[in-house]
Protein backbone atom coordinates (compact mmCIF):
# COMPACT_ATOMS: atom_id res chain seq x y z
CA UNK A 1 0.00 0.00 0.00
CA UNK A 2 1.26 3.43 -0.85
CA UNK A 3 1.47 6.37 1.49
CA UNK A 4 -0.48 9.58 1.03
CA UNK A 5 0.58 13.12 1.86
CA UNK A 6 -2.17 15.51 2.97
CA UNK A 7 -1.84 19.25 2.56
CA UNK A 8 -3.60 21.10 5.36
CA UNK A 9 -2.33 24.58 4.60
CA UNK A 10 -0.49 25.81 1.51
CA UNK A 11 1.43 28.92 0.58
CA UNK A 12 1.02 30.66 -2.78
CA UNK A 13 2.57 29.15 -5.90
CA UNK A 14 3.06 25.76 -4.26
CA UNK A 15 3.41 23.08 -6.95
CA UNK A 16 4.77 19.62 -7.73
CA UNK A 17 8.15 19.84 -9.50
CA UNK A 18 10.72 17.27 -10.55
CA UNK A 19 13.96 17.49 -12.52
CA UNK A 20 12.14 18.94 -15.54
CA UNK A 21 10.38 18.01 -18.77
CA UNK A 22 12.91 17.48 -21.55
CA UNK A 23 12.69 16.93 -25.28
CA UNK A 24 9.59 18.99 -26.06
CA UNK A 25 10.80 22.58 -26.46
CA UNK A 26 10.52 22.09 -30.25
CA UNK A 27 6.83 21.45 -29.62
CA UNK A 28 6.40 24.58 -27.51
CA UNK A 29 6.53 22.83 -24.14
CA UNK A 30 8.57 24.59 -21.44
CA UNK A 31 11.17 22.64 -19.47
CA UNK A 32 9.67 23.47 -16.04
CA UNK A 33 11.04 21.63 -13.01
CA UNK A 34 12.45 23.21 -9.87
CA UNK A 35 13.40 26.90 -9.98
CA UNK A 36 16.41 25.99 -7.81
CA UNK A 37 17.57 22.68 -9.27
CA UNK A 38 20.39 22.18 -6.74
CA UNK A 39 18.24 22.79 -3.65
CA UNK A 40 15.60 20.44 -5.09
CA UNK A 41 18.18 17.71 -5.78
CA UNK A 42 19.71 18.05 -2.31
CA UNK A 43 16.27 17.81 -0.64
CA UNK A 44 15.64 14.60 -2.54
CA UNK A 45 19.07 13.18 -1.70
CA UNK A 46 18.49 13.90 2.00
CA UNK A 47 15.44 11.58 1.95
CA UNK A 48 17.26 9.00 -0.26
CA UNK A 49 15.27 9.80 -3.42
CA UNK A 50 16.71 10.15 -6.92
CA UNK A 51 17.81 13.80 -7.44
CA UNK A 52 15.05 14.36 -10.02
CA UNK A 53 12.19 12.87 -7.98
CA UNK A 54 8.99 14.89 -7.72
CA UNK A 55 8.86 17.11 -4.64
CA UNK A 56 6.90 20.15 -3.49
CA UNK A 57 8.15 23.61 -4.42
CA UNK A 58 6.84 26.64 -2.57
CA UNK A 59 7.33 30.37 -2.97
CA UNK A 60 8.17 32.33 0.20
CA UNK A 61 5.69 30.55 2.48
CA UNK A 62 5.45 26.85 3.33
CA UNK A 63 2.41 25.15 4.84
CA UNK A 64 1.24 22.23 6.97
CA UNK A 65 1.45 18.57 5.96
CA UNK A 66 0.80 15.08 7.32
CA UNK A 67 1.48 11.62 5.92
CA UNK A 68 -0.45 8.45 6.71
CA UNK A 69 2.75 6.40 7.07
CA UNK A 70 6.15 7.12 8.56
CA UNK A 71 8.24 9.02 6.01
CA UNK A 72 11.42 11.06 5.86
CA UNK A 73 11.08 14.75 5.01
CA UNK A 74 13.63 17.45 4.20
CA UNK A 75 13.21 21.17 3.55
CA UNK A 76 15.80 23.12 1.53
CA UNK A 77 16.04 26.26 -0.57
CA UNK A 78 16.63 28.74 2.20
CA UNK A 79 16.42 29.25 5.92
CA UNK A 80 13.00 28.97 7.51
CA UNK A 81 11.33 27.81 10.71
CA UNK A 82 10.00 24.25 10.46
CA UNK A 83 8.62 21.99 13.12
CA UNK A 84 7.35 18.46 13.45
CA UNK A 85 4.56 17.88 15.99
CA UNK A 86 5.42 21.24 17.55
CA UNK A 87 9.16 20.54 17.89
CA UNK A 88 11.50 22.82 15.93
CA UNK A 89 13.80 21.00 13.51
CA UNK A 90 16.50 22.15 11.08
CA UNK A 91 16.34 22.82 7.36
CA UNK A 92 18.84 21.12 4.98
CA UNK A 93 18.63 17.80 6.86
CA UNK A 94 16.07 15.01 6.87
CA UNK A 95 13.73 14.12 9.71
CA UNK A 96 11.36 11.30 10.50
CA UNK A 97 7.74 12.40 10.13
CA UNK A 98 5.66 9.77 11.86
CA UNK A 99 2.23 8.83 10.56
CA UNK A 100 -0.27 11.47 11.60
CA UNK A 101 2.29 14.00 12.88
CA UNK A 102 2.08 17.51 11.41
CA UNK A 103 5.02 19.10 9.59
CA UNK A 104 4.76 22.88 9.60
CA UNK A 105 6.93 25.00 7.31
CA UNK A 106 7.13 28.77 7.92
CA UNK A 107 8.30 31.66 5.73
CA UNK A 108 11.65 31.64 3.93
CA UNK A 109 14.20 34.21 5.04
CA UNK A 110 16.55 35.61 2.42
CA UNK A 111 15.30 33.22 -0.26
CA UNK A 112 12.28 32.84 -2.52
CA UNK A 113 11.94 29.18 -3.52
CA UNK A 114 11.74 26.37 -0.98
CA UNK A 115 11.54 22.59 -1.39
CA UNK A 116 9.89 19.84 0.60
CA UNK A 117 11.05 16.38 -0.41
CA UNK A 118 9.35 13.30 1.01
CA UNK A 119 10.88 9.82 0.90
CA UNK A 120 9.44 7.81 -1.99
CA UNK A 121 8.73 11.02 -3.90
CA UNK A 122 5.36 12.22 -5.17
CA UNK A 123 4.01 9.68 -7.65
CA UNK A 124 1.26 11.50 -9.53
CA UNK A 125 1.12 10.38 -13.22
CA UNK A 126 3.73 11.77 -15.61
CA UNK A 127 2.71 14.00 -18.49
CA UNK A 128 5.19 14.04 -21.41
CA UNK A 129 7.73 12.26 -19.26
CA UNK A 130 7.62 14.52 -16.22
CA UNK A 131 5.54 15.26 -13.12
CA UNK A 132 6.46 18.95 -13.13
CA UNK A 133 3.64 21.48 -13.17
CA UNK A 134 3.52 24.13 -15.91
CA UNK A 135 0.95 26.44 -14.42
CA UNK A 136 0.21 28.71 -17.36
CA UNK A 137 -0.62 25.89 -19.76
CA UNK A 138 -1.92 23.51 -17.06
CA UNK A 139 0.45 20.72 -18.09
CA UNK A 140 1.58 18.10 -15.56
CA UNK A 141 1.49 18.25 -11.78
CA UNK A 142 -1.81 18.02 -9.97
CA UNK A 143 -4.26 18.77 -12.82
CA UNK A 144 -1.78 21.44 -13.94
CA UNK A 145 -2.56 23.69 -10.99
CA UNK A 146 -1.07 24.91 -7.73
CA UNK A 147 -1.40 22.74 -4.63
CA UNK A 148 -4.19 23.87 -2.31
CA UNK A 149 -5.35 23.04 1.21
CA UNK A 150 -7.18 19.72 1.22
CA UNK A 151 -5.12 18.18 -1.59
CA UNK A 152 -3.81 14.66 -1.15
CA UNK A 153 -0.73 13.45 -3.03
CA UNK A 154 0.37 9.82 -3.54
CA UNK A 155 3.86 8.88 -2.39
CA UNK A 156 6.16 6.14 -3.68
CA UNK A 157 7.65 3.27 -1.72
CA UNK A 158 10.09 4.39 0.90
CA UNK A 159 13.26 2.54 1.91
CA UNK A 160 14.96 2.57 5.31
CA UNK A 161 14.09 5.74 7.20
CA UNK A 162 17.62 6.92 8.08
CA UNK A 163 17.89 10.68 8.48
CA UNK A 164 20.80 12.46 6.87
CA UNK A 165 22.55 15.80 6.93
CA UNK A 166 25.08 17.67 4.81
CA UNK A 167 28.69 16.59 5.27
CA UNK A 168 30.04 19.09 2.74
CA UNK A 169 28.58 22.56 3.14
CA UNK A 170 26.51 23.86 0.21
CA UNK A 171 27.46 27.51 -0.22
CA UNK A 172 26.57 30.18 -2.71
CA UNK A 173 28.46 33.44 -2.84
CA UNK A 174 27.15 36.87 -3.69
CA UNK A 175 29.39 37.56 -6.66
CA UNK A 176 27.84 39.34 -9.65
CA UNK A 177 25.48 37.19 -11.71
CA UNK A 178 27.40 35.82 -14.71
CA UNK A 179 25.96 36.19 -18.19
CA UNK A 180 27.08 35.15 -21.66
CA UNK A 181 26.47 37.84 -24.32
CA UNK A 182 24.05 36.85 -27.08
CA UNK A 183 22.19 35.76 -29.05
CA UNK A 184 21.16 39.35 -29.94
CA UNK A 185 24.11 41.12 -28.24
CA UNK A 186 24.64 43.11 -31.45
CA UNK A 187 21.24 44.78 -31.01
CA UNK A 188 22.82 46.80 -28.19
CA UNK A 189 25.52 49.43 -28.62
CA UNK A 190 28.57 50.06 -26.44
CA UNK A 191 26.69 52.46 -24.20
CA UNK A 192 23.85 49.99 -23.55
CA UNK A 193 26.45 47.32 -22.76
CA UNK A 194 28.25 49.66 -20.33
CA UNK A 195 24.95 50.32 -18.58
CA UNK A 196 24.11 46.63 -18.44
CA UNK A 197 27.45 45.60 -16.93
CA UNK A 198 28.26 48.60 -14.74
CA UNK A 199 24.94 49.64 -13.23
CA UNK A 200 23.09 47.62 -10.60
CA UNK A 201 19.81 45.93 -11.43
CA UNK A 202 17.15 45.07 -8.92
CA UNK A 203 14.79 42.15 -8.44
CA UNK A 204 11.10 43.08 -8.29
CA UNK A 205 7.85 41.49 -7.20
CA UNK A 206 6.96 41.00 -10.90
CA UNK A 207 8.14 37.43 -10.94
CA UNK A 208 6.73 33.95 -11.11
CA UNK A 209 7.92 30.59 -12.40
CA UNK A 210 7.99 31.91 -15.98
CA UNK A 211 10.01 35.08 -15.66
CA UNK A 212 11.52 37.81 -13.51
CA UNK A 213 11.11 41.45 -14.54
CA UNK A 214 14.11 43.49 -13.38
CA UNK A 215 14.26 47.13 -12.43
CA UNK A 216 17.22 49.34 -13.27
CA UNK A 217 18.47 51.61 -16.04
CA UNK A 218 16.55 51.02 -19.27
CA UNK A 219 18.43 49.30 -22.10
CA UNK A 220 17.75 50.62 -25.56
CA UNK A 221 18.17 48.29 -28.52
CA UNK A 222 19.95 49.91 -31.44
CA UNK A 223 18.00 47.83 -33.93
CA UNK A 224 14.63 47.96 -32.17
CA UNK A 225 12.90 45.72 -29.68
CA UNK A 226 11.21 43.38 -32.13
CA UNK A 227 12.89 40.42 -33.77
CA UNK A 228 11.46 37.64 -35.88
CA UNK A 229 10.55 35.21 -33.08
CA UNK A 230 13.28 32.71 -32.34
CA UNK A 231 14.06 30.22 -29.61
CA UNK A 232 14.49 31.27 -26.00
CA UNK A 233 16.19 29.17 -23.34
CA UNK A 234 15.95 29.00 -19.57
CA UNK A 235 18.02 32.02 -18.52
CA UNK A 236 17.43 34.18 -21.62
CA UNK A 237 17.45 37.90 -20.83
CA UNK A 238 14.85 39.54 -23.06
CA UNK A 239 14.73 43.31 -23.48
CA UNK A 240 11.27 44.57 -24.48
CA UNK A 241 10.45 48.14 -25.51
CA UNK A 242 10.35 49.30 -21.88
CA UNK A 243 14.09 48.60 -21.69
CA UNK A 244 13.60 46.65 -18.44
CA UNK A 245 15.22 43.21 -18.73
CA UNK A 246 13.07 40.11 -18.34
CA UNK A 247 14.84 36.91 -17.29
CA UNK A 248 13.10 33.72 -18.41
CA UNK A 249 13.10 31.02 -15.75
CA UNK A 250 11.94 27.38 -15.46
CA UNK A 251 8.46 27.84 -16.94
CA UNK A 252 9.57 30.41 -19.54
CA UNK A 253 8.00 30.17 -22.99
CA UNK A 254 10.04 28.44 -25.70
CA UNK A 255 10.11 31.23 -28.30
CA UNK A 256 9.93 34.98 -28.17
CA UNK A 257 10.04 38.15 -30.24
CA UNK A 258 12.16 40.41 -28.00
CA UNK A 259 15.91 40.75 -28.53
CA UNK A 260 17.94 38.81 -25.96
CA UNK A 261 20.99 40.74 -24.84
CA UNK A 262 22.51 37.80 -22.95
CA UNK A 263 21.85 34.51 -21.19
CA UNK A 264 22.33 33.91 -17.47
CA UNK A 265 24.88 31.11 -17.01
CA UNK A 266 23.23 27.88 -15.89
CA UNK A 267 24.93 27.81 -12.48
CA UNK A 268 23.92 31.36 -11.53
CA UNK A 269 20.24 31.24 -12.52
CA UNK A 270 19.06 29.71 -9.23
CA UNK A 271 21.15 32.24 -7.29
CA UNK A 272 19.34 35.05 -9.13
CA UNK A 273 15.93 33.37 -8.74
CA UNK A 274 16.53 33.09 -5.00
CA UNK A 275 17.27 36.84 -4.53
CA UNK A 276 14.39 38.42 -2.59
CA UNK A 277 12.47 41.23 -4.27
CA UNK A 278 14.07 44.66 -4.05
CA UNK A 279 17.65 43.40 -3.94
CA UNK A 280 20.33 45.11 -6.01
CA UNK A 281 22.88 43.01 -7.87
CA UNK A 282 25.38 43.36 -10.72
CA UNK A 283 25.82 41.41 -13.93
CA UNK A 284 29.22 40.36 -15.24
CA UNK A 285 29.95 38.95 -18.68
CA UNK A 286 32.01 35.82 -19.19
CA UNK A 287 32.73 33.83 -22.34
CA UNK A 288 30.66 30.77 -23.19
CA UNK A 289 33.84 28.66 -23.08
CA UNK A 290 34.60 29.83 -19.55
CA UNK A 291 30.98 29.35 -18.50
CA UNK A 292 31.00 25.75 -19.73
CA UNK A 293 34.09 25.00 -17.59
CA UNK A 294 32.47 26.58 -14.55
CA UNK A 295 29.14 24.84 -15.19
CA UNK A 296 30.91 21.46 -15.17
CA UNK A 297 32.64 22.41 -11.89
CA UNK A 298 29.27 23.44 -10.44
CA UNK A 299 27.81 20.05 -11.36
CA UNK A 300 30.79 18.32 -9.76
CA UNK A 301 30.34 20.42 -6.60
CA UNK A 302 26.68 19.41 -6.38
CA UNK A 303 27.63 15.75 -6.86
CA UNK A 304 30.18 16.12 -4.05
CA UNK A 305 27.56 17.63 -1.73
CA UNK A 306 25.12 14.82 -2.53
CA UNK A 307 27.85 12.18 -2.28
CA UNK A 308 29.00 13.66 1.03
CA UNK A 309 25.70 13.41 2.88
CA UNK A 310 26.15 11.67 6.23
CA UNK A 311 23.88 9.80 8.57
CA UNK A 312 22.71 11.70 11.59
CA UNK A 313 23.59 10.33 14.99
CA UNK A 314 20.91 8.92 17.22
Amino acid sequence: MKALLSIHRSGPLMSVQDGGRYGFRARGVSTSGAMDRDAHAIANALVSNEPGAAAIEFALIGGAFTADRDVLVAVTGGRCAIDIAGKAVATWESHLLKAGETLTIGALRGAVWGYLAISGGITIPEVLGSRSTHLRTAVGGLDGRVIASGDILPLGETGKLKSRMLGTPYLRGNAPIAVIPGPQDDYFDESAWKTFLRQPYRTTTSRDRMAMVLDGPALSALKGHDIVSDATVVGSIQVPGSGKPIVLTADGQTTGGYPKIATIVSFDLARLAQLPAGQDFMFRAISADMAEEQAIHAQDRLSAVIGGLKKKKG
Binding site: P181, P183, V228, D230, V233, T263, A288, A291
Partner: peptide, 17 residues
Protein backbone atom coordinates in the same frame (compact mmCIF):
# COMPACT_ATOMS: atom_id res chain seq x y z
CA UNK B 1 26.51 31.09 -34.95
CA UNK B 2 24.80 32.66 -31.95
CA UNK B 3 25.74 31.80 -28.37
CA UNK B 4 22.71 31.23 -26.14
CA UNK B 5 24.34 30.47 -22.78
CA UNK B 6 26.48 27.53 -21.67
CA UNK B 7 23.95 24.87 -22.67
CA UNK B 8 22.53 26.14 -25.98
CA UNK B 9 23.82 27.46 -29.28
CA UNK B 10 22.00 28.75 -32.33
CA UNK B 11 22.68 28.76 -36.05
CA UNK B 12 20.90 31.59 -37.84
CA UNK B 13 20.12 31.59 -41.57
CA UNK B 14 18.36 34.95 -41.96
CA UNK B 15 16.94 37.81 -39.94
CA UNK B 16 13.62 37.84 -41.79
CA UNK B 17 10.75 35.47 -42.38
Amino acid sequence: ILRCGDRAIGIEFSDTV
